[in-house]
Design a protein around this nucleic acid. Sequence first.
DNA 1: CGCCCAGTTGAACGTCCTCAAATTGCGTGG
DNA 2: CCACGCAATTTGAGGACGTTCAACTGGGCG
Lengths: 234, 234
Amino acid sequence: MECGQVCEGCAVRDVALCGSLDDSGLADLNRIGRRRRVGCGETIAWAGEESRSCANILSGLFKLSASTADGREQTVGLLYPADFVGRPYAPRTDYNVTALSEAEICVFPRPAFEETLERHNELERELLRRTLTTLDEARGRQLMLARQSAEERIARFLLDMAKKMGGARPTPGGPQTFDLPLSRGAIADVLGLTIETVSRQMTRLKAAGIIALPGGRAVTILRRADLQGLAAET
Amino acid sequence: MECGQVCEGCAVRDVALCGSLDDSGLADLNRIGRRRRVGCGETIAWAGEESRSCANILSGLFKLSASTADGREQTVGLLYPADFVGRPYAPRTDYNVTALSEAEICVFPRPAFEETLERHNELERELLRRTLTTLDEARGRQLMLARQSAEERIARFLLDMAKKMGGARPTPGGPQTFDLPLSRGAIADVLGLTIETVSRQMTRLKAAGIIALPGGRAVTILRRADLQGLAAET
DNA sequence: CGCCCAGTTGAACGTCCTCAAATTGCGTGG
DNA sequence: CCACGCAATTTGAGGACGTTCAACTGGGCG
């Protein structure tokens, strides 16, 4: 038993940040980490509060959101299993972290995590790599939010989700069906639109025969090429 | 002479990334870095191209921009003296880097810079810290681009610029005058608006007696409190 | 002196938002 | 099993904000 009870049977052991560590490093992390279940809708960190802990996501989906003083809200990032959450090296967080589904996370107290970061160079390097990638994503979303139409945003979002979710695909290249892990409201928050606009655009895509909406949160991509045409980006 | 000809008399020696290094580390960086003048409007990195080098900005202002296939453009970050530019650990850049003024930079070949990063842990840690801060900024801009009105964006932008630029301030707390280092077009690119909207909003602020526009790119903030009221954010 | 470019101003339009109502989906309890 | 109630979603009508297109202004420089 090389890595103790927390890492034991961890679903994201190799793909998460920890994947960069050798056994001794893993033992270090294992010492300070502990698993926690998070209920759907539960917020695990609040903007403006002290940055008390960091975590790896084991399962479930989270949103990272910011809001204006008068309550307008924007999701500035989605977090999937194996993603890292938290803000090392800063006393406070600027964003809320909220579960969009039932979830499980592996939590580390921030000071202890920072010490581990300092002790294990490979962990720090991996965090740097991930942060740079996340920064690229955040910048890509700036382009979307500033310059793309509602139709383009929805098309891109559906394609992104299709990739993330996998889902049923009877014949390769054929129609793909999957469940959106977000409500219409959550989608609107991500895309910088309103619920109504999201709904209308989905309806339009359905009317155009590009997608089908079999019910619930399910989506079927019928004509992927057309959807990609609408999403046309960089 | 502890750090050779490049770092010699470097204006940002202590505030840039390099500030984290001791003399031996600095000697390492000095070996691979070289200074370069950049003309106003010159683009030093192109989206989609190979990520060949990284750099520290010694003087001048740069924009980091992304664009859609059909030419809509968005500035996703502004880079000031002492800021780091480049994308270590990735084969290509996703963004253009363009000088908005005459500038000078200290360039490192990317592979050599990455090696230095690996050899000097403190450099890597400082880059991580900076990247995390930049990520926070990028997320803040997402909120702005998605949810703030043109008026709010302009107000916030003017306040941010006033802080960055310093500028003349006859009496403490009194009116502050400074030159915007960006054209109206560049401002529009940053704020996700059009030139016309930027111009109209500036005119409105002037008409309201909140700012004055003494000519050229100069701006005077007459009633800071009111401007802050309009900018109301997180 | 006149050109040229940045900036300003004006008018019309379109996209997306707001507010409101109708509809659907789903869990609960009768 | 069906009725009910709540929440999520869809649909509709109207309006606001920012864009688009176009004309005009002013300052710098040949």
